[in-house]
């Protein structure tokens, strides 16, 4: 059994820790560093409750060794809000009743954020496809879809001055 000294930057804070080879990233985050907002729902990489951002991409932190993430930038639910202001995706989940028990919610929001990063204006089908790696047992998904749409609108509005300028010269 080998142990490894690794460095993880979580939501901008750098942590140095020693992990066993087999320590999963999710356990390093939860048990070693106390980022318990990231949940574990299964061991088959199916449910997505453990989704975090790794260098900006949504990944399942239960299917990644902590040592593999050495040197990476990790984003978790704890880092979504800035200075007490909710990120649009958080606001969407609150406004649209996109959660009930909340257990899948952190992973769901991070997966949705990954989508909005790539596709700022997804349609319903694209949203449902983008969260196929995240299971929710409470909501029936409909209000989650609405929450993501809300966030997309919110982010669209936030950047709309540019959009209008860019679109202004278009062939509308």
């Amino acid at each position: 059994m080998t142990e490894h000294d690794i460095e993880l930057s979580v939501n901008g804070t750098t942590h140095e820790l020693t992990v066993e080879s087999r320590t999963l990233l999710v356990h390093a985050l939860r048990d070693e560093l106390g980022y318990t907002g990231t949940n574990v729902g299964c061991e088959s990489s199916t449910c997505g409750a453990c989704t975090v951002h790794l260098d900006g991409d949504a990944v399942k932190s239960c299917t990644l060794l902590a040592v593999q993430a050495d040197g990476a930038e990790i984003g978790t639910v704890e880092g979504l809000a800035e200075d007490g202001t909710y990120a649009p995706i958080q606001e969407g989940f609150q406004k649209e009743h996109g959660l009930q028990c909340g257990y899948c919610t952190p992973g769901m929001m991070l997966a949705a954020d990954d989508l909005l990063e790539r596709n700022p204006d997804p349609d319903e089908g694209e949203i449902r496809e983008a969260i196929e790696g995240n299971l929710c047992r409470c909501t029936g998904y409909q209000n989650i879809v609405n929450a993501v749409e809300f966030a997309a609108d919110e982010m669209g509005e936030a950047s709309s001055p540019e959009m209008t300028a860019a679109d202004g010269g278009g062939d509308d």
Partner: peptide
């Protein structure tokens, strides 16, 4: 009305049993 449960659940502040140390 919006749920008052949500703020802790959407920020990771919620405490589920396995979160307890």
């Amino acid at each position: 009305v919006e749920r008052r449960e949500d703020p802790s659940l959407i920020t990771g502040e919620a405490e589920y049993t396995d979160d307890i140390q």
